[in-house]
Design a protein around this nucleic acid. Structure first.
Lengths: 90, 90
DNA sequence: ACAATATTGAGATGATTATCTAAATATCTC
DNA sequence: GAGATATTTAGATAATCATCTCAATATTGT
């Protein structure tokens, strides 16, 4: 369950997407322009991030607007803090 | 550079290893017993974690004792907090 | 409804990776 | 030093994954 989360952030392109979205929301096209790979490939990465719950998407006319889901990041950060501090509970 | 870190935690077996080490230090053999895969495979995972700086290892007689490197986890947690909070600096 | 734009889905391919078995290395005990 | 135990390395294989191209879907404007 947390597997999707870590797996999603394991790819540098997807981390870059997340970092871009942290600054401001963007459409799929705006995001795709930032990378030297095919639009379809960026779309695939967006799908992975969405599936992991890291981003949310909403149609906006012809565009699809992506935004960060900060809640999930907090959950992840909490997991890390709990783990490195030798936490005993889940 | 941070790539090794996220990549290392992308695998569920390695996350389990980290969680076990968070409770207490263990030798390679003690860790390997916790998993249904071959010892050599666990050894491989330990190598990945060590390479990512997430664990440290020290010889202890015939055994190799692994322990968690909490510093790196803090770095990772810091990155997440900075990112989800819309951080502008690296 | 048609043409244009934006985005995603499908299928293929090359690279990475998790796992295995078997061999190699290191330490301990006798 | 020989044998036993602990761990890693090497080489092979199957699965996963990032990327590509091309086709499909959705929306807009005329």
């Amino acid at each position: 369950m947390r597997d999707h989360l870590f797996r999603a952030l394991a790819d540098p392109t997807r981390r870059k997407i997340v970092e871009l979205l942290a600054v401001k929301d963007r459409t799929a096209g705006e995001l795709a322009e930032e990378f030297p790979i095919a639009f379809a490939s960026v779309s695939h990465h967006l799908g992975v991030l969405k599936n992991a719950g890291l981003v949310a998407v909403e149609r906006e006319g012809q565009h699809m607007r992506y935004r960060l889901n900060t809640t999930v990041f907090q959950d992840m950060a909490r997991y890390l803090v709990k783990t490195f501090s030798g936490g005993t509970d889940a």
